[in-house]
Nucleic acid binder design. Sequence first.
RNA 1: GGGCGAUUGGCUCAGUUGGUUAGAGCGCCACAUUCACAUUGUGGAGGUCAAAGGUUCGAAUCCUUUAUCGCCCACCA
Length: 883
Amino acid sequence: MPEIPSAYNPKATEDKWYKLWESKKLFHAEPDPKRKPYTIVIPPPNITGILHMGHALNDTIQDIIIRWRRMQGWNAEWLPGTDHAGIATQNVVEKMLAKEGKKRQDLGREKFIERVWQWREQYGTTIISQLKRLGCSCDWDRTRFTMDEGLSDAVNEVFIRLYEKGLIYRGNYIINWCPRCQTALSDEEAQHKDLNGLLYYIKYPVKGEKRHVTVATTRPETMLGDVAVAVNPKDERYKNLVGEILILPLMNREIKVIADDIVDPEFGTGAVKVTPAHDPNDFDMGRRHSLEPIVVMDPDGSMSKNAGDYAGMDRFEAREAIIEDLKEMGLLEKIDQHAHSVGHCYRCHTVVEPYLSLQWFVKMKPLAKPGIEAAKSGKIKFYPERWSKVYLDWMENIRDWCISRQIWWGHRIPVYYCRKCEKATEGKKGIIVARSKPQKCPDCGGTDIVQDEDVLDTWFSSWLWPFSTFGWPDKTKDLAYFYPTSTLVTAQDIIFFWVARMIMAGYEFMGDAPFRDIYIHGTVRDETGAKMSKSLGNIIDPIEIIDEYGTDALRFSIISITAVGQDVFLSKEKFQVGRNFANKIWNASRFVMTNLSEDVDTDLCVLYKSADLTLADRWILSNLYSTLEDLEKALESYRFSEAANLLYDFIWHKYCDWYLEIAKSRIKEKNTQVILYKVLEKSLRLLHPIMPFLTEEIWSILPHKRDSIMIQPWPHLQKDLIDKKVEEEMDLAIGIITAIRNIRAEVNIPPQKTCKAIVVVDSEKKRTTIDKSLDYIKNLGRLESLEVTDKLKRPKASSVAVFGDCEICVPLEGLVDIEAEKKKMMSKAGELEKYVKSIEAKLNNKNFAERAPKDIIDKEKEKLSEAKVSLEKLRENLKRLES
RNA sequence: GGGCGAUUGGCUCAGUUGGUUAGAGCGCCACAUUCACAUUGUGGAGGUCAAAGGUUCGAAUCCUUUAUCGCCCACCA
């Protein structure tokens, strides 16, 4: 056997194995009616994205699930792909053009889109190669892109079907407008941030009188578009004002005072300016009172020609100018501090403007209905469960979805207009919704037909992802087999954007939920709790971590610190845990392999039944399978950190710390070798979903000839090998060994020096148990001799510890520090006394005796008698020490 | 305004249906280096589980209130 390096080297292994898996098509799945599918679709990362810790967490979790299910025998399909990310990508390419001193308009639509595709070719697949470095076992043969032909067809099909059903409409409404991106946004894309703003109180004079009405506003610049002032009809202060005419300052426009229930008399002055073109409430009010909106802003956020003297100014400049002018005119009553939340563009963080414009919308209420029922009935389940409430709250209060975007990169809206009809009717006539450009207008036969300039919201393609990727609207074999998918893994921030909408689309177009389980993991934050983001500069680059610590270290570390539903706080040091663990396994494997001399390929169960196994043998097997039992439960309920920590504890603190150490003295025995080998081999399988590269590397140098570990069967849970009695017996041995080590450390016996020990135990049962573990105690306690007796013949100079009803005594050759011994034992005795008293108090409590269940009482009694025995032994020893 | 989450040793967190003398990792202290691994081993110190009240025989765990921090939602003019 060639020499195995003494440290695990991820760099030398990862690439090699990933290439092998890919070349053998181990990630690929085909429909197979004989096997059950387990499907996951990836949350498609943006083509502009580079791998960040959020992806690392998200995709590691998916890979763990899919690798585990694959080993369990499911036909596992993890479908990958990317999202065209309309606004984000367009912004990136526009920035690039800006460096050349160009705007997208200089290129024209067609050339610009060409440039975006070019950009995508060049940079848009970075994230894919990064996912490969993360070890993701995605079925790359099925990689999809939201702008692929098939997926684009699906988008058109959906648009047309919804339109024909009356669920898509076009209209003039207030939407969120980003003046920088110059496009409409959906409500979800406008992110509200709390800001300390100002509330301006402005006097509006009553026509022909000296009186005035004061209104309060946070956006004075919109007053130029005011068409009325509203008060609450029940507000006594303004009762006689309703119907009066006011003069709108700066514009000198006559506007009416109207009464409307929506006005809150408590807020501001109780009188509110009505600006239907720039505020959603005012828009509704305007409709109720038949007031024409006046748009005073242009799409770029500058004041429009309707803004009088302020036309052409930027909106914020105009705000200041208006306040100055009002001040001069004596119409500014006061300015208050006012905390409120303001919408920002989720792509460029510009303050968005509520803006009246002609857009396309999806009527959501009817679509939401089945999705609401599905969550309520448990057909779809959120993990952790609390997200179900968040989802339902949103679904039950759902609002229509603005889907048109005034950008170029995306799916162009499949709507055509007949110029002739449009001019003639301005109504629905002349709108042609079609898969491709019609030759003639069906209404008038006209041929001057143009397509809608706008594209669809990015999420209008991603909400179809679970089925469009499998070929929908065609009834493909893939679709029939892999849909509905099994589990969706994602973060909380896209529950509304994506998860909820996928559920709606799934029911509408497939008649079934797109997935059963939704696992929502936490947000990745830095050690101070701030969200990791490029702009904050607190990013930890996963690729850097992979280079420094290895992929498996990254995966293990991030998983082990991710408690269910809790956010993840990361710092670089935390990745050492995974690296150290990888190295530990590496070295344990190295030890096992260099010591194998026998044929170890024996079945464990056969061995268990036929051979006379030692206590330690039975103990490690029992532990292996109870770990497996817990591990499966953890994985099934998406408790990944628990899964990772179970394996960590078993491999490090059971297998390495105890079994392997015990095995060293019997390393030539066949049974020992078999168990060392078999437990390692099974542990590697259990660990493979979390640490794929390390386990594959070790797998490849194990003395057997088998295929990749990733297609090995998941170990079968052997419940009859779990033996609680064996675990108790071993606990006794471990307790005694620890007590001896403790004494040795306290009296400074150097580790390399052996010593004697005496174990005193009354009970015959325990005596037999200890006899089974004599070797372990001797070896791991580094004893030259061990005496087990029922009577203490305490040598004068010795140190004693008590473990349960066992006394452990280490005779010392030199002098013992009697005082130190006494102190140690007295403090131990003190602790025990307190403990005994607390149990006694409990047992003496009548209520406890009467009401507690019997098994609890028995347990307490047992604890008490054990503690009493220990205490008594301690006291005896103390007495002897004093005499 | 409504909702959710967090608060446990110096740090980061576990603690599943209430029944342990409250656990782990990191850090710290002491000792150990031909014997798989210093990316290590052995031992140790360190916590009245944010506060107050309540339910219960029994509360870190359930209920109420409060405080601090974080997040989400809302037609906050």
